[in-house]
């Protein structure tokens, strides 16, 4: 089963996704995509680390190029999150730059082939109606395309609002 978990900042999507992944088949892998740039980032990473402590995840830190990530034993993979991965692929030195969209999707497809269950966390960044610089707009449009492709492809899509799961798409019976 492939599940896309979608939500805004501080919506409770990570905690929900972790619970979902824990119900998948072991071993459990947590692919962390957040590059720590500041003390605030490090605190955020630490908060998430504590949140999933004792849930039995093997944590793999991977900022770009998921396509080449080799998983030793198929189980359940939790990928957190596409918002960071998209920024990394678009803007970081090791990223794919103009080929970010392909790199992200190929990466997710490569993970699909190496697990029984896949939970992918992604971000709703589409609701502030702001005016954006070209770089930010690139980011928004790339993430939107990734979200739309994966939502069409995956069996299940769940939006998390205030910690409450709202089913947007369910597996066909």
């Amino acid at each position: 089963m492939r599940t896309l978990v979608y939500g805004g900042a501080a919506s409770g999507k990570s905690e929900y996704a972790e619970a979902l992944a824990c119900a998948g088949r072991a071993p459990l892998y947590y692919i962390a995509t957040m590059m720590p740039f500041s003390e605030e980032d490090r605190q955020r990473i630490e908060r998430h680390r504590l949140m999933r402590a004792e849930k039995g995840f093997h944590t793999l830190e991977r900022y770009t190029n998921l396509k080449d990530l080799k998983i030793t034993e198929p189980g359940c993979i939790l990928l957190e999150c596409l918002g960071n991965l998209t920024a990394n692929e678009l803007f970081s030195e090791t990223g794919a730059g103009e080929k970010a969209l392909e790199a992200i999707l190929d990466g997710v497809f490569a993970l699909e082939a190496q697990c029984h269950d896949l939970v992918v966390v992604t971000n709703n960044v589409f609701g502030d109606g702001g005016k954006y610089t070209d770089g930010t707009l690139d980011y928004i449009l790339t993430l939107a395309e990734v979200n739309n492709v994966l939502a069409a492809r995956f069996e299940r899509v769940i939006e998390v609002v205030c910690g409450i799961p709202i089913v947007l798409k369910e597996p066909a019976k």
């Binding site: 900042a9 605030e40 960044v125 589409f126 702001g130």
Partner: peptide, 15 residues
């Protein structure tokens, strides 16, 4: 108001 559905604010207090 739902405030989390946008780009991460540059301003620390807003974040």
């Amino acid at each position: 108001n739902e405030t989390g559905n946008g780009i991460v604010p540059v301003d620390k207090d807003e974040r």
